[in-house]
Design a protein around this nucleic acid. Structure first.
Length: 767
DNA sequence: CAGTGAGCGAGCTTCCGCTTGACTT
């Protein structure tokens, strides 16, 4: 029997704390919430002051039973869940479920997992803050009411199994609105003029630099006129301005900023980042990864300072305390940082290593001195024109934190950016080697990436660190949003180049619009968003969460009753639900008429059909049945053209025969394919399904046959033991032995496995 | 898994926030 039982939320945390507390304390974890509203029913007695009906979550029964037993035996139970709304509620649910008596129960909190912080907490216990608990109950009940009343409206009015909620519906709305901005965007052309100068210094040494014209032109004529003037112009440096500037490091990582940087720098998805971070946390390498705080413990700041002084010297250190600006942040934890600052590299799998390195650098950099730079702006006069050329350069006087880390941005780098400038002074006469006018285009706003969506949600105070990743997967699995790559396409542009007294005009082309893993709405996502926005304006408001959060804060302060708040909200909300239920269904979205099919003269529609968006030629009541073709990935009802719709009907098409069987080209769920003899082969990246011919299709079929034959061959066999093989399976390479299969642990190269290693793996996995 | 494009109408779907788990051929 233990004197003291301490309950925290996370098992990894429990392990660490147990070490700090030592004898007389047993530390267990609740694995988060142990109770919730019923999964199937509403679980709220609306008639009776919205009394919630809580149930112990099925997967928590075992945990609760164990805690119950330990709590009975313990002298004192210490409820040490996080110090925020959810944590307080967890403590309260525990006290209720475990039947804890007030005189043997203590509530403690700490923001950092250090020995001092924990001992300090033990010395300063308090009681459960029921106001904070009530704020959580209000949050929970509001979310349940919204989700469980809105979703059924969608089932009745649009389509079964859809969902809506305070967070997910707004996330989809952001993506839908961005898509509409992109659809409405008209790229405008303009002309940038760049000059490549050379300047000769006193020793006769020549150096080159680039400058841009202070003005941009709307038309080619204007740009050409300037180039004409440049033919005879004299260029004079009129002014050189040097301005010192300072760059400060970014704050340590929160969940959201970690997701953004891991996305940009390591190409990881939000959920990948979280699962790698989870492993780092469980291995004790980093602090907790679901946090909205940028705060570092005093101990961590001191350790970072020591590390910086050791690695770079005293002048690179600058102690900084960061404050959270995020709306609705609850700051129950520290920022995400290495557990030990002097651990510069870890021994782990590649993804873990890379993410750890990112966290280490960001944390250390946050405690480093600012970078000192000097920006130079050189103004160059054109003798026969009003306009000026401007060259800008930046030199780093002191690198400071940039020695280690600089934050990435999502925008692509601008061409002709800050470079080193040769020393220039007023009155210098640089010579223009060439002057180039380039046609450029204004850019539409970018589609959201997972991480930039998280950033936007965080700015709006919507969602929490623990829900960013699940929210994205919800809106994708519901079919509201897709994560896609876009190939983009060619765009022509004009270049006018003045060189050696002659202007040459060229029409060039560039590849634009290539996108990777960007989020865009589906037709159903747009339809549901429009419907919700129209019927439930309040809940869809970007400020809705911020407004209810304000009320939750008042409840937490004890200035408001949660029942009153919920009642007031529900009265209004429920009447909008009733009104929506009475209105007309939008089940089959209105067919959208695109035009007429030139071949048959029949109308061409697009609409959301039984199996998703579909194009239709002809009317249902025609004598001849209408023809249908599904829209392809990336095509939207709102933006598809008549031509694109008609193209859909040219597939599948038969290109000929091979081995006396038809060869058919089509586009399926997994992209363009060749079908032959009941088998499917994907087309290559460069193959166009609309123009591909029989020869190419047949060679694809032959390649596939060869590849399949190879894939079936074992990766390795062993002459000493012909019952043992390394094979290639659906989930990667594996070991097959005596009719059983064994996973190959990380760190082995399958093709190089020795017989001994295989036997070791088999022996180990038997345990 | 590579198509489908309706009127027999069962029973089901769904929220947000805490936490980690189990593992195929």
């Amino acid at each position: 029997m233990q004197e003291n039982l301490v309950i925290v939320e996370s098992p990894a945390k429990a392990k660490t704390i147990e070490k700090f507390l030592g004898k007389g304390y047993v530390v267990k974890s609740s694995f988060g919430h142990i109770r919730d509203l019923s999964k199937k029913e509403l679980g709220i007695d609306i008639q009776n002051d919205f009394t919630p009906h809580y149930e112990i979550s099925p997967d928590k029964k075992k945990t609760v039973a164990e805690l119950e037993k330990l709590a009975k035996e313990a002298g004192t139970v210490w409820l040490a869940s996080d110090e925020d709304r959810e944590g307080e509620a967890i403590a309260w649910h525990l006290s209720q479920v475990l039947g804890l008596k007030d005189d043997k129960t203590k509530r403690i909190v700490f923001h950092e997992i250090t020995k001092n912080a924990i001992l300090h907490a033990i010395e300063n216990p308090r009681t459960i803050d029921l106001n904070l608990v009530n704020a959580q109950q209000a949050r929970r009940i509001l979310d349940r009411l919204v989700g469980f009343e809105l979703s059924p409206v969608l089932w009745k009015k649009i389509k079964p199994s859809l969902s809506a909620g305070r967070v997910q519906s707004v996330a989809v709305r952001l993506i839908v609105e961005r898509e509409r901005e992109i659809m409405d965007f008209k790229a405008a052309a303009y002309y940038r003029v760049l000059a490549d100068f050379t300047v000769t210094d006193a020793d006769g040494k020549k150096s080159a630099f680039r400058a841009e014209l202070s003005k941009r032109y709307a038309t080619e004529q204007e740009a050409l006129a300037l180039l004409e003037k440049c033919k005879t112009a004299v260029f004079t440096v009129r002014n050189v301005e040097r301005k010192p500037s300072k760059k400060s490091p970014a704050a340590p990582f929160t969940t959201s900023t970690l997701q953004q940087e891991a996305g940009r720098k390591l190409g990881m998805s939000v959920s990948q980042t979280m699962s790698v971070a989870q492993r780092l946390y469980e291995a004790g390498y980093i602090t907790y990864m679901r946090t909205d705080s940028v705060n570092l413990s005093g101990q961590a700041i001191a350790a970072a300072k020591a590390e910086i002084v050791k690695l770079f010297g005293e002048k690179y250190s600058e102690v900084r305390n960061y404050k959270t600006k995020t709306k609705g942040a609850q700051e129950a934890h520290e920022a995400i940082r290495p557990s030990y600052m002097d651990k510069t590299v870890i021994d782990a799998a590649p993804a873990e290593k890379r993410l750890y390195d990112l966290i280490w650098k960001r944390t250390i950099a946050s405690q480093m001195a600012a970078a000192q730079t000097e920006r130079t702006v050189v103004d160059i006069e054109i003798s026969n024109a009003e306009e000026r050329f401007v060259a800008t350069g930046e030199t780093v006087l002191f690198d400071g934190f940039l020695k280690l880390y600089s934050e990435s941005t999502e925008d692509e780098a601008q061409e002709g950016e800050e470079a080193l400038l040769p020393p220039l002074k007023q009155g210098d006469r640089p010579e223009a080697k060439s002057v180039t006018a380039l046609q450029r285009f204004t850019q539409s706003p970018p589609r959201y990436s997972e991480a930039s969506l998280v950033k936007r949600l965080e700015e709006l105070g919507i969602g929490r660190p623990s829900t960013y990743a699940p929210t994205i997967s919800t809106i994708i699995t519901r079919g509201y949003v897709v994560k896609e790559n876009r190939e983009g396409g060619k765009r022509g542009y004009v270049q006018l180049k003045l060189e050696k007294g002659e202007i040459v005009r060229k029409e060039l082309s560039e590849h634009v619009g290539k996108e990777k893993n960007k989020l865009s709405p589906t037709d159903i996502g747009m339809l549901v968003t429009d419907y919700l926005d129209q019927q439930f304006t309040d809940v869809m408001d970007y400020n809705f969460t911020a407004m209810v959060e304000k009320e939750f804060d008042e409840i937490a302060e004890g200035d408001k009753s949660w029942v009153d708040m919920i009642r007031k909200f529900y009265e209004k909300f429920h009447s909008t639900v009733d009104r929506a239920l009475e209105s007309q269904p939008v089940r089959s979205s209105q067919p959208h008429l695109l035009g007429t099919d030139p071949k048959s003269g029949k109308p061409v529609y697009v609409k959301i059909g039984r199996f998703g968006p579909v194009a239709q030629i002809g009317d249902a009541d025609d004598a001849e049945k209408p023809r249908f073709a599904s829209l392809r990935k990336g095509q939207l009802i709102a933006s598809i053209t008549l031509e694109e719709a008609l193209d859909l009907f040219t597939l599948p098409r038969t290109v000929g025969e091979f081995e006396e069987k038809e060869v058919v080209i089509g586009i399926g769920r997994f992209g363009p394919y060749v079908r032959h003899d009941g088998k499917f082969v994907s087309l290559g990246k460069t193959d166009d399904p609309y123009t591909i011919e029989l020869d190419r299709a047949v060679s694809l079929i032959r390649d596939k046959r060869e590849k399949d034959a190879k894939a079936k061959e074992p990766i390795r066999t062993y002459p000493e033991d012909d019952g043992l093989q390394v094979l290639n399976g659906r989930y990667g390479p594996y070991i097959a032995w005596q009719g059983k299969n064994y996973r190959i642990p990380k760190g082995y190269v399958p093709a190089e496995l020795t017989l001994e290693q295989c036997r070791e793996i088999i022996a180990k996995s038997k345990k």
